[in-house]
Design a binder for these strands. Structure first.
Lengths: 188, 188
DNA sequence: ATGGCTCTAGGTCAATCGTCCTACGAGGGG
DNA sequence: CCCCTCGTAGGACGATTGACCTAGAGCCAT
């Protein structure tokens, strides 16, 4: 098997395990077991656990960019695109109830570990932030676009934490509806 | 030294360390070092690490109840009391920027660890939820009091995650102001 | 002072962690 | 056929983890 396929398998398994059980709680043995490799063989593909985390973050950044591009292709209006982001807490409801937001929980964990890769993880947030900011500019609110983007981000993080804590689907739907109404007041 | 004082010292140190570095990332040696005790002696006071977590959660529950009682004594109106909760993200701004919300981050971590004490940690959220619900009932919104309480909780969690990720004080102040205006629309 | 209780120190345990090393098998090009 | 590289397996390392044990110091009551 070519090395690139194995490497991608490792990144995919690590991505899933980091999300489900956290970075620190995921061991080399866990990832190796998920992929079906021996532990020791790992260092042929990644020289350290941090390197795997780095690759996982890069993969998430790339996947996020693809998702944003798809949203831009599918949703014609800026407001519709913003709603695609808002509705992600419904789209990924099952995972969020079980594991929270992949971006928020990773950033929170790395902050507590004082991990060197915290800044890299923050780029995931920044990617969404700047994309949302762009949508608000297109919506005609250039002067407060960044503040509105941050508000939408805070919404998603708050809903994710509460959904994870209480497993309440009706709550998620109510908050999405509230956000939809809020967004209407900013449509031209 | 009486055992009760040592026990309280252990709980206080564990509380702080769990908040700053997370539950799993905090070892017995860390707590023992913070208190100035030997590692082995630990099992005289707590038979397991879970028992310490249990005691920490109980201590947080008690401290939270005291705080809520103080808010009720200091703020005469329900709206004023709710604002005391909202403004906690400003009051504890420094800690939140560094470590996030103590309740939210603990719950998130325990969920990922599939820890048996997750339900206990959830009681911290429930305590705030029911207190906020009571305030909204007093405000004259009995029929949607719980939904409004959940919305306020989600606000605080969202702001905490974003404040931790971006260290942006102006953002926190904007969101608190936004919440103040929102609350005004619910005042009789 | 003697016995018993509270509290502590320090060592030990097996398990697991991330890391590293070496040996080996498969396979293609010379 | 040999050699070289790629990819893998599995063991070993030092450190650290949570957990447990025992010996004894301090003190109070009898």
């Amino acid at each position: 098997m070519p090395a690139v396929a194995t490497r991608e398998q490792i990144v995919a398994a690590a991505d899933r395990l980091f999300y489900h059980h956290g970075y620190e709680h995921t061991s080399f043995a866990d990832i190796a077991g998920a992929v079906g490799l021996s532990r020791g063989n790992f260092y042929y593909h990644f020289k350290s656990k941090d390197a795997i985390l780095d690759a996982v973050i890069d993969a998430r950044l790339a996947a996020t960019r693809r998702m944003l591009e798809q949203w831009e292709a599918e949703a014609p209006t800026p407001a519709g695109r913003i709603m695609r982001y808002v509705e992600i807490v419904l789209t990924n409801r099952a995972d969020i109830q079980d594991y929270g937001c992949p971006v928020g929980t990773l950033t929170t964990e790395l902050a507590k570990l004082e991990h060197a890769m915290l800044g890299q993880a923050g780029r995931l947030f920044t990617l969404f932030r700047e994309w949302l900011r762009e949508q608000f500019i297109l919506l005609g609110h250039a002067e407060q676009a960044d503040e509105l983007a941050m508000h939408v981000l805070a919404f998603s993080q708050g809903v994710a934490v509460m959904a994870n804590a209480f497993h309440d689907e009706a709550f998620i739907r109510r908050e999405v509806d509230r956000m939809r109404q809020w967004l209407h007041t900013y449509e031209r």
